[in-house]
Amino acid sequence: MKCPRCSSDHIRKNGRQRGKQNYICVDCKRQFIESYDQKGYTEDIKSECLEMYVNGSGFRAIERVKKVHHTTVINWVKQVGSTLPDTPYRSEIPEVTEVDELETFIGFKKNTLWLWTVVNHSVAGIIAWVLGDRSKDTFKHLWITIKCWQSYFYVTDGYPVYPCFLSNEDHIVSKTYMTRVEGENSRFRPEAERLRLRIILLDDIVKHECYSKTEEMLKYSIRLVIHYLKYASVALRALSTRKLEAIA
C-alpha cells in the first residue's frame, strides 16, 4: 500500500473511521483509508428518475419510488435541461407548419404563461417553441424563426394574433388539420385527471396540483420532454460530455 499523496510505502495503521481501518503516512502525515465507497448515484438511477419525470411523475412521487431525495432529482433536471438546445436538430423544412398555444402557470394559477409550439405536419416532434403571454409580441419571437422556412401553408386555430403575421393565401384556420400539433401538445399534459391541462412539472402533494415554481425550471422541463419524445432518452450523455469539457 502506498500513500495517495507522496507514494511512500512507509505506512502505519491509525485507528478506525466509520468501521474502516485508517492509515497514516509516516513521511507526509497524510491520513487515508484503503478504499472509499462510491459517492453519488449511478447513471441508471439518474436515467430512471428522469424518465419517470418526463412521463408524468412528480418529484415527490419519484422520491417515494426510487428513494432519491426530490431536491436531487430537481438538480438533475436543471443540470440536464441546461445542456439541451431548445429543440432537436432538424434537417427538413416543413411544407405545412402547424402552430398552437398551451396554457400553464408559474407558482400559482393566476400567474399564467402560454407555451406556443410549432410542428411539421408530416413529421413527429416539436421543432420550435416560445414561452410567454398570449400576445402578438410573444408570437413575434416565434414568427422570426418560422417565417424563414417559407412553408406553403401555416395551420392554426382562430386566435386573432395569427392574421397579424400570416397572409390569407398561406393561412389555414382549422382545428381539423391541427392533429399533429394537438397530439404533440397532449404529450405535455399528464395523463392523470387531477393534473388535466397543466404541463408535467413540480408536484405539490397538498393541493395535488402540478406546476413549476420558476420560468427557468419550466424551460428546462420543456427541453427534457421534447428531447425525450424525439430520441426516447433523457440525454445523460450530454451532461457527461459537458462535465468532461469543463474539466478539460
Rank of each mutant, 00 (worst) to 15 (best):
I24V: 14
T97N: 05
I200S: 07
Q21K: 12
V234S: 01
T214K: 03
K213H: 13
Q150H: 14
Y162D: 02
W129R: 00
K147A: 12
R30C: 14
L218Y: 07
I62W: 05
I24H: 04
K207L: 05
W129Y: 10
P160E: 05
L224R: 11
T72K: 00
R194I: 09
A124F: 14
N120A: 08
A246P: 04
Y36S: 15
K136A: 09
R223N: 02
L224N: 06
S8M: 08
N75I: 02
Y154Q: 01
W76S: 00
V77Q: 04
R134N: 00
A248F: 15
K46S: 04
V161Q: 00
L218G: 06
K219H: 03
R194Y: 05
V130C: 13
S35L: 13
F153G: 03
I24M: 13
G19F: 03
V234M: 02
A128M: 09
T97W: 03
N22P: 00
F59R: 07
Y220H: 11
R134D: 02
T145Y: 09
I74Y: 15
V26I: 15
Q79V: 13
D9P: 10
D37I: 15
V65E: 10
T156W: 01
S233R: 11
T42A: 10
F139I: 09
M217E: 08
G56N: 03
C3E: 02
V96K: 13
A248K: 13
K39R: 14
F139M: 03
L50V: 08
L236F: 04
E191N: 09
C164N: 08
I226C: 00
S174A: 06
V173C: 06
E43F: 05
G58E: 02
Q79T: 13
K243Y: 01
A238N: 15
E95P: 00
E103M: 08
R180T: 14
K136V: 10
G107H: 00
N22L: 08
K243A: 06
T71S: 08
Q21D: 01
S35K: 11
T176A: 10
S91K: 12
S82H: 03
G15C: 03
H70R: 04
L84N: 03
M52N: 08
H171G: 02
I33M: 02
E95C: 09
R60T: 15
I74N: 11
E51L: 04
D204S: 05
K29S: 09
N75C: 07
V234N: 01
I172P: 00
H69A: 14
F165A: 04
L244N: 07
N14R: 01
V118S: 09
A246R: 10
S57T: 12
R194D: 07
V26R: 07
T117G: 13
V173T: 11
V155T: 06
S35A: 13
G158H: 02
V99N: 06
E48T: 14
I172N: 05
R18P: 06
E216F: 07
T72F: 01
S8C: 10
S8D: 06
E43M: 13
H69G: 14
Q79I: 12
